[in-house]
């Protein structure tokens, strides 16, 4: 089971299935071809940027790839899938020896997405960042502020504590 919400239907990504110079459309194989390129570069760079649609679609394939790869490199099916999705063959080694051990004990999904701000004037397509968790890059959002000591948070935290202890005792609140 994937550990994040996915769409009911796959996106068609009509641009990826669009016409070639010879006049013929590439169709669903062209779409998959595009996906392999994105998954390949994600496994290599661990953080990539692109249009939200493509990143979101590739995210599901990456998660599924990591899930299947968790069966180990001795498993034929896992090796076949890895062989299909990773066009650069040095990445197969990285997948089984680096990424699979990294996500072994994760209880959450292995990828993370960030929506980037819209540049003026902006179009209908959002730009996003897709990254593998535990990557060596500096965090996307630096130094998250800790607001727990602000006056209102202290008050609300203590009100919550009071409420919980009162409801544990069974006294009406």
């Amino acid at each position: 089971m994937l550990r994040f919400g996915i769409r009911n239907r796959p996106r068609r990504l009509s641009k990826a299935m669009g016409r070639k110079e010879d006049g013929h459309g590439t169709g669903p194989p062209g779409r998959l071809e595009r996906m392999t390129i994105i998954v390949n570069s994600l496994v290599r760079h661990e953080r990539i940027e692109g249009s939200h649609q493509y990143m979101d679609e590739a995210r599901g394939y990456t998660e599924r790839l990591l899930q299947i790869a968790a069966q180990g490199d001795k498993n034929h099916e896992a090796m076949d899938v890895a062989n299909y999705w990773l066009k650069d063959k040095d990445l197969i080694h990285k997948l089984f020896k680096v990424l699979v051990p990294r996500y072994e004990n994760y209880t959450t999904c292995a990828t993370r997405m960030w929506t980037l701000p819209v540049e003026y004037p902006g179009g209908k397509n959002k730009t996003s960042i897709l990254e593998l968790k535990g990557n060596p890059w500096p965090p996307v959002v630096p130094n998250p502020r800790n607001n727990s000591k602000s006056l209102i948070n202290v008050l609300l935290h203590n009100a919550k504590k009071d409420y919980r202890s009162a409801s544990k005792d069974g006294t009406p609140v």
Partner: peptide
Amino acid sequence: HFKDEDPALSN
């Protein structure tokens, strides 16, 4: 001010 990292004194 109230939005410091540790506003205990202000509070």
